[in-house]
Amino acid sequence: MAGSIIVANDGPAADYGGGLTLSVFITCLVAASGGLIFGYDIGISGGVSVMEPFLQRFFPHILKRIAEAKKGNEYCIYDSQALAAFTS
């Protein structure tokens, strides 16, 4: 059988003696904070980068490309290293 695990049942499993230590707690806290910040960045920065007032103030050349795209040139509207750095 592919993917199966055979376990011998010799009684209850031995206690491994582990517990919640300070280093385990801090590691979990840092991992959770990283996930929270990543989600916030995707939700906020990603949405802001397509808002017209934001583009008008900080990235006017991208706003110009959007106006040109409405005329038929839709290739690489958001091709900007500065905008990519902001979003990341």
Rank of each mutant, 00 (worst) to 15 (best):
V48L: 08
R57K: 15
I37L: 12
C28G: 13
R57M: 14
I37W: 07
M51I: 06
Y40Q: 14
P60M: 04
R57D: 09
G34A: 07
S49W: 02
L36I: 12
G47K: 03
I42K: 05
L29W: 13
L29Q: 06
A32M: 06
V50M: 02
E52L: 09
G34M: 05
S33Q: 10
M51Y: 07
L36D: 01
G39E: 04
D41R: 08
P53F: 14
F59Q: 02
G47D: 11
V30H: 09
V50E: 00
M51S: 11
M51H: 14
C28T: 13
G39F: 03
S33T: 10
G46W: 04
I37A: 08
Y40M: 15
L55A: 00
I44Q: 03
V50K: 01
G39V: 15
F59A: 03
P60G: 05
F38P: 00
C28V: 12
E52W: 01
G34N: 06
G43W: 09
S45T: 09
D41C: 05
Y40E: 11
F38H: 04
V48D: 01
F59M: 10
A31G: 15
P60H: 14
G34Q: 13
D41M: 11
F38L: 05
C28R: 10
I42Y: 09
F38W: 06
Y40T: 13
V50N: 00
F59L: 15
V30L: 11
C28H: 10
E52F: 06
V50F: 05
Q56K: 13
T27E: 11
L29R: 05
F59T: 02
I44E: 02
G34E: 08
Y40R: 06
G35D: 01
M51N: 13
R57H: 15
Q56L: 14
G34K: 08
P53A: 07
I37S: 14
L55Q: 01
V50Q: 00
A32Q: 11
Q56D: 09
G46N: 02
V30P: 03
G46M: 07
V30S: 15
A31Y: 09
G43I: 05
L36R: 09
S33E: 12
G47I: 03
F38V: 02
R57Q: 10
G34H: 05
M51V: 06
G34C: 15
S45R: 11
G46V: 03
T27S: 14
F59W: 14
S45Y: 09
G47H: 11
S45M: 09
G43T: 06
S33N: 13
F54K: 01
S49Q: 12
S49E: 04
Y40F: 13
M51T: 13
V50W: 01
F58G: 03
D41P: 00
T27A: 11
S33H: 06
G34L: 05
I42N: 02
S33K: 14
P53T: 03
Q56T: 14
I42V: 15
E52N: 07
